[in-house]
Design a protein around this nucleic acid. Structure first.
Lengths: 284, 284
DNA sequence: ACACGTTACGGCAACCGTAAGGATT
DNA sequence: AATCCTTACGGTTGCCGTAACGTGT
């Protein structure tokens, strides 16, 4: 598939004429015919319905037009990407929302150059997929399964806390025992964040008796559910600083158990040390 | 820019070696050298840092790697698009959420063929941009500014209603006069939906005295804000059927004023009548 | 008859592979 | 010396433009 062919093809579709397309592109008209023909041969499908009074797209090839336009647009973007350097950071929603922001500001200030620094948030599995498919340059996540071709580093070990509404009986307790977690209805956070595994470390095989009464897509939603009295939950300590200060939520310490989660920063293997990506990852 | 060159380039980056890339692609090694060189010439930038012990990407070209991978992925998608026909429908959030769903089901049932029918929701201006740039095949929106190259049709005229919380003084009124709207704090919906223009039709130049106390991104958020007593609002009648039935919101009729909004379906000009897009648009 | 797209064909550039040439370890 | 990438070069292919050829209005 040749991008010039696509350009001719789209010009024909837009203008409705091989002739007009040729003028628009500044080539001879038979060249456009040839381009479209070659393109049709390469995809094995008729793309343009020829007619003396205006050419149209063939039925069921609507999606191809869309993709072709996206391809040319993306080719332009790729060119620009070299003149306006940018990196795309993927982050699990929790990390991106509560932990990454100060570092982003710091990193951007340190690289005072006009570096575009974009962040995409999403569920951990989505971020992992995006990294693997090259949609993002570097990822910060709550787990990593050491896939080949990538370098992962624990950049932080973040404490987790049990939260409850201030009206909860536990609010007056100085601490609880791990086993007591099994008695309470619990709100689960976003799936695939590895919190289940951490609870297994503390509770052993009893973990399967946890009563997860609902599972919500974001920590903000979890916090609201806990405040509404639906149950307790376990979240990043840094995610509930405001609510604890205002008294909307209380933290319940768990005896003899430091609940914490390792956070990973991951990028492709084989990047040079000077790479902005490596600098971003190492600076975390 | 040549897709084969990109393929060689990415193979070099992945494997860290021109030799390995050549083996992987089943071509001679100098060919890969040539590909990378040509690519670098075409973009005017060194892309690969050569070294006897593993090649790496050049600094500040991280974004180019990402784009290159996206390009090849998209080229594959374009191919598949011909074998698995699909159309992408863009819809303003309101329409997509409250009005489009029944028709989507109906249309999909009518075209029992395995047609992929995807919908992207978004603010009206975003949808318009996506349509213009060919990211979507057909759009349903709350306005249309008759841009050239597109066909628009009013597919529906949808009534709007004034909503208030059941505790509001208006809840007991049989109707209000248009001028009374100026006295009440009002919650604005998503920007760019054309509701402002409609209020101007009713209120004339007084519309500028409306007290829009907050503007929220979605009708769901607007409904919650009204229920919480932040003010009144104007929304699609069909968006609040549930809340009216349950008594969570009340509808306040406006005397001598039919508030309604024309809804448009838009697609590229020059599609054949048999096109699935045209069928979708005409069936609405 | 005219306008439009297709086919035919020749010149030229681009591409690929083989072989030889540096550079680094 | 071995490995790796680059350069050089010839054969082949592919691409573009001109010109001639169908076809539908």
């Amino acid at each position: 598939m040749n991008l010039e062919f696509l350009r001719s093809y789209l010009a024909v579709i837009r203008s409705g004429s091989f002739n007009a397309a040729a003028r628009e592109l500044g080539v001879a008209q038979p060249t456009v015919s040839q381009h479209v023909k070659k393109l049709e041969e390469s995809v094995g499908h008729t793309l343009v319905l020829r007619s003396s009074s205006g050419c149209t797209i063939a039925s069921k090839t609507e999606a191809f037009v869309r993709h072709a336009e996206a391809l040319l647009r993306l080719a332009d973007l790729a060119q620009n990407a070299l003149h306006n350097p940018s990196i795309l950071v993927g982050a699990s929603s929790n990390i991106g929302t509560y932990l990454l922001q100060p570092y982003l500001k710091e990193f951007r200030d340190a690289n005072q150059s006009r570096l575009a620094l974009d962040v995409v948030l999403g569920p951990n599995p989505d971020i992992a997929r995006k990294l693997e498919q090259g949609e993002i340059d570097v990822a910060t996540m709550e787990w990593w399964d050491s896939r080949p071709g990538f370098v992962a580093r624990t950049f932080r070990t973040e404490p987790l806390v049990v939260i409850a509404p201030p009206t909860h009986p536990w609010a007056k307790r100085s601490h609880i025992s791990p086993a007591e977690l099994l008695d309470q209805p619990m709100i689960g956070g976003e799936l695939g964040t590895g919190t289940g595994r951490i609870l297994q470390d503390i509770l052993g095989s009893n973990a399967k008796h946890l009563r997860i009464v609902m599972s919500l897509g974001s920590t903000e939603a979890v916090k609201r559910a806990v405040r509404a009295g639906h149950g307790i939950s376990i979240v990043f300590e840094s995610a509930i600083a405001d609510e604890v200060r205002s008294g909307a939520l209380v933290v319940v310490p768990v005896r003899r158990a430091k609940i914490k989660k390792d956070l990973y920063v991951i990028h492709r293997r084989g990047l040079p040390q000077e790479s902005i990506i490596v600098q971003f990852a190492n600076g975390l």
